[in-house]
Computed example of a mutant assay.
Amino acid sequence: MEKTIPKHLMFPSGLLVIVIHTLQIGVGITGFSRLIFQYAKQDAWIAVIVAGLVAHVVVFVIVQTLKRFQGKGLFEIHVDLFGKWLGNALNFLYILYLFGYGITYIINYYAFVGEYLMQDMPIWFISVVMLILTIYTVKGGIRVVIGISLTTFLLTFWLFLVALQTLQYFDWLHFLPVFEASPNNLLQGAYEMSFSLTGFELLYFLYPYVGTKQTVHRYAQFAILFTNMVYLYTIIVTIGFYSDESLLKTIWPTLNLFKSVNFPFLEQFEVVLICMMMLVLLPNMSTLAWVVTKGLKETFRIKQTTALYTLSIIMFFITLFFKSRAQIGDYTEFFNTVTFIASFIYPVVLFIATLLIQTIRRRKAI
């Protein structure tokens, strides 16, 4: 039976290009260049392309899985495939994953503020501000969450154009010799890229709310292509700007690029950038919170508003335990592995399980 969603809650499939793109541009874009360069060196741009191609394949797998369940989201797919108990157990694990993902946004933004704006800014203040904005957005429903993604894109995309100012320091010799990295190093670099590309897996939950499902795959692939081009542009600008040693020593190369940006009316452009990063992370936080609270409502019959307030309080207290950059770095590195499994491995496993289980059920029905 196909799941029916009220028309007033649905949105055009074309918006998936912006929504998925904004979900993929988050904390990862600030420091992915250094992580990939550690392994692939001047061929890091190739690793970005490899990771992007894999993301295209995984999105194809996700859409093919969703097409087999007539408009259902991942939480319902789990129950449909594995039964009530195992299905809800998988739902709970996925909710924990998304909840942990939300923590990475708060603690990393706290690290950005401490580095570029005010070192004495307490994490509780950052957490409160981000959670209040998230609560306000999620309470508006899915269409408001989608609207925030579109607004954020329109207000922040110009930052990539500002980065063109750094081309005056660009050196093409930083890319030579080409194709020197081994296949193993390129794959390791592509793996490090996985955290930056994640976000497309939330298509599992947005799909039921898309108006024209026949075009979902097309627009989802456009979104991935757009994101891949942004990351490729960023890695090229970064490698051309930094020397080898300075790139490896810079924790957030993308943010540091903007220290060289100058305007007659503004001395420290990176201050504006850190403030804009709040806008960049807001749609990510809001979408995650909406999915998590929706999942708790469907799986455990908890009111979505109650779940939203409760999880916000829990998240607030958890973030208070992060007091140093080392702790934030360790948690983010750990979550890199978690996101790789959840975003790149699990969709393939789920698709294979879907094929096997549905085939067995069809044969039993004959």
Rank of each mutant, 00 (worst) to 15 (best):
E2H: 14
L15R: 05
L23P: 01
I25M: 06
S33A: 02
R34D: 00
Y39T: 02
D43L: 07
I46W: 12
V48A: 12
V48T: 11
A51F: 04
V54S: 02
V58Q: 04
V63M: 07
T65K: 02
Q70P: 14
Q70H: 15
G71R: 03
G71T: 00
K72G: 12
D80E: 09
W85E: 09
N91C: 02
F92V: 01
L93A: 08
F99Y: 13
F99L: 05
Y101S: 05
I103C: 04
N108C: 11
G114V: 01
E115K: 15
Y116C: 13
M118V: 14
Q119M: 13
D120N: 14
V129Q: 04
I132Q: 07
I135Y: 03
T137C: 15
T137Q: 10
T137V: 15
T137P: 08
G140N: 12
G141K: 12
L150Y: 01
L155A: 11
L159S: 09
V162A: 06
V162T: 01
T166L: 08
S182L: 12
L187G: 00
S194R: 04
S196C: 06
T198H: 09
T198N: 11
G199C: 05
F200Y: 05
E201Q: 01
L202N: 06
L203Y: 13
L203F: 03
L203P: 11
Y204M: 00
Y207P: 06
P208Y: 01
Y209C: 08
V210Q: 05
T212E: 10
K213L: 07
K213Q: 04
Q214L: 14
Q214C: 10
T215P: 08
T215W: 12
H217T: 14
R218T: 06
I224L: 03
L225W: 05
N228I: 07
N228S: 05
M229G: 15
T234D: 10
I236Y: 00
V237Y: 01
V237R: 00
G240Q: 09
F241E: 01
D244P: 00
E245H: 05
W252K: 13
W252Q: 09
P253H: 12
L255H: 11
V261Q: 12
N262A: 14
L266Q: 10
E267I: 07
F269N: 03
E270H: 14
V272L: 13
I274G: 14
C275S: 15
C275L: 15
C275V: 15
L282Y: 00
P283N: 07
L288Y: 10
L288T: 09
V292C: 04
T293Q: 09
L296N: 03
L296I: 03
T299K: 08
F300S: 10
R301K: 15
T305E: 13
T305A: 00
T306Q: 14
T306W: 12
L308I: 13
L311G: 02
F316P: 06
I318T: 13
F322G: 07
S324K: 02
D330C: 03
Y331Q: 03
Y331T: 08
E333A: 09
F335W: 05
F335S: 05
T337Y: 00
T337I: 02
S343P: 00
Y346D: 11
P347M: 08
A353L: 14
L356N: 11
L356P: 06
T359P: 10
I360N: 14
I360Y: 15
R361N: 03
K364P: 11
K364Q: 14
